[in-house]
Every structure is written in C-alpha cells, then in structure tokens.
C-alpha cells in the first residue's frame, strides 16, 4: 500500500462518484434513476464484503445475513414508528451488534477459515428459512406483520429527519444513496490507511507474526467483522427503501453468492474492485432479465468460473498490473 498512489486512486474514484451523483439525475429518466439507486445500494453491500474479505481476510459466505437484518430492522421499525430516522440508525446498529456477537464466538473460539465460511453461510440460510416461515397473523412485531415468504410491502420510505410527512423523492433518494456510497468508500480508505487498518492488512498477510508483535488478532478481526456487518446493514436499509419492500430473499443463497461473485469479479483486496464488479454484474443481471435465451443464474455461474480460472485477481487488480507494465 504505497501511500501516494493509494490516495491518488481514491481521490480520483471519489471525484468520479461525486460527478456521477450530481450529473446523472440531469440526464437519465425516472426509471434509470431508480435503477442506479439500487445499483449504488448494492455497491455499498459489495464494499462491506470487499473490506471484510479482501482486507480482513475473513471469508464470510453470509454477508447477506447482515444485509437482510438491516432491511428487516428498517422495515419493522419504520412501520412501528411511522418515520425513518430511528429505523435507519437501527438498521446500522442491529446488524453490527449481531455481527459482533457472532464474530465473538467465531474469532475468540479460534475457528479456522473453513468453519467461518460454513457458519456464516448457515446463519444467513437460517434467517432465510426463519423469515420464510413467519406467514400469518401470529408473526408480528408491534404493528409490523412479517408476512413470511410474501415479504413486507408498502414500507414507509425515507423522510426528512424530524418531518415524517416530508418523504424523499426519487432524485433525493438517489443523492442520499450516492452520498452513503461515497462516505463508506472514503471512510474505508481512511480506516485502511490508519494504524488499525494497516494492522488489519498485516493480519491478513500473517496472523502469527502480528501476535508476536503484540497485536490482538481476535480483537482486530472482530472489529473488522462488526464494521462490515454495519455497512451491510446500511445497504439493506437502502435496499428496503428503494422498493418499499423486503422479503426473505435478502437472506437467500442467490443473494449471498452474488455478493461473493461481485467481489471476485471486481478484485479482492481493492475497494474499487467490488464496486466495479457489482455494477457490471448488476447491469448484466438486468440485461439478462429482459431475454429468455439463457438463464441468469447459469450465466452468472459461468462468469464466476471463468473469473476464478482465468482472471483470479479480478478486473481492477489485473488492469492495475497492465497499467504498471505499460
């Protein structure tokens, strides 16, 4: 992580994101704007795994657990309170706290990487099955019916803090989601350049050496996992807002494997990679959804395999290498 290039790249990316955020609503129609809003929300989700896995070296197969938890927390709280500010905050805090608890058992129990993958995947699938079976009147939290596999429709969407009657319009929502994306991206950059972040990267490189230098590996991993959980929760909240709807699919195997594909395709160990990977795959998914020649999941599987075998570093690191050689 040689200092100057690291910052130069991040400043360029940030500038590009700000330009897109400001420029796009002027040139695209309502439908395109909604599309880009969900893309940006998913980019935040991709960043959360890119951070946890790419920098923390924690192979989390169940990042969707925190995403879904964020979405459901928002849904339940917003319905009960009739406004979105507290719901948004809780959608960050609840997944982070849950990640901290889960992480405590995994890291302080010294589980190996393989078990970590298995456990996190199981957790998201448990949530998937749990939420699927909450159909009927019996399953409600306060005023909010969970509705099982049907999902929770017509959620109250984001309002201006302190003014529940003033809802954000699509352009405002887009600005907000883009602002969140920029904040998360820049925040992770700053974090990774800090003492804490440099230790996190060192842990990924060699855990034993970090311990021998006096760094508590378990604590660092726990913090990374917790931060990642909170960011995924934020993405979940924005996603639930986008469609004013949340269903158990946020916890599904399709969802969780998608996040992994974004990160693999874009490039592990970068922050720009997961964003690029997420955009490309989301665009593809939309395009493939409009035709019936090939099944989307099948195409995704093929792309995933192709990347693992042919471009294992992912797009961004491979391009960087080419650029350095040229």
């Amino acid at each position: 992580m040689s200092g100057r290039r690291w910052w130069k790249g991040s400043i360029l990316t940030t500038a590009a994101m700000v330009l897109i955020a400001l420029g796009v609503p002027q040139v695209v129609d309502q439908f395109g704007l909604l599309q880009l809003t969900v893309f940006a929300a998913m980019c935040i989700l991709a960043l959360s795994l890119g951070f946890v896995w790419g920098y923390g070296g924690i192979l989390c197969f169940g990042q969707s657990a925190f995403f879904g938890l964020g979405a459901y927390t928002y849904a339940v709280t917003a319905i009960n309170l009739g406004e979105s500010t507290v719901a948004t905050l809780l959608a960050l805090v609840v997944p982070a706290v849950f990640a901290a608890l889960l992480g405590y058992f995994m890291f302080y129990g010294r589980l190996s990487d393989v078990y970590l993958g298995v456990i996190t995947l199981s957790v998201t699938l448990i949530f998937f099955n749990l939420m699927n079976s909450t159909a009927g009147d019996a399953y409600r939290v306060g005023k909010a019916r969970l509705n099982g596999f049907n999902g929770m429709p017509s959620l109250p969407t984001l309002n201006v803090p302190g003014d529940p009657g003033r809802l954000l319009d699509p352009a405002e929502t887009f600005y907000l989601v883009m602002a969140c994306l920029v904040i998360v991206y820049v925040g992770l950059h700053v974090l990774l350049a800090s003492h804490f972040g440099r230790v996190v990267v060192a842990i990924r490189e060699n855990e034993a050496r970090c311990e021998l230098l006096g760094y508590d590996v378990r604590l660092h991993k726990l913090l990374v996992f917790t931060i990642g959980g909170g960011i995924a929760g934020l993405a979940g909240c924005l996603f639930a807002n986008w469609g004013a709807f949340v269903s158990p699919n946020v916890f599904s195997l399709t969802m969780t494997s998608q996040i992994i594909i974004w990160v693999i395709v874009g490039g592990l160990g970068t922050l720009l990679g997961p964003i690029i990977g997420c955009l490309i795959m989301q665009y593809l998914a939309t395009a493939l959804g409009t035709q019936q020649l090939a099944n989307t999941s099948l195409v995704f599987g093929v792309i995933f395999l192709a990347f693992v075998l042919l471009v294992p570093r992912g797009i961004v690191p491979s391009l960087r290498r080419l650029a350095l050689r040229a």
Binding site: N206, A208, R209, C210, E211, L212
Partner: peptide, 29 residues
Amino acid sequence: HAIARRGIGIKTQVPSLFDGLTVHEHLWL
C-alpha cells in the same frame, strides 16, 4: 500478543513475515 506486550520479541526459525508488505511497513507496524 499479551506476552509480546510485556516485552518478549522473537525471530522465528523460518522467518515469519508479511510477504505482500514492504520492509518499511514491517518496521513501522
């Protein structure tokens, strides 16, 4: 890590290093 914090440092038999990081980063950390 607690023992290291008390003030015991070790150079292991097979050098235990961060292969992807620079020499400077090692000393810095």
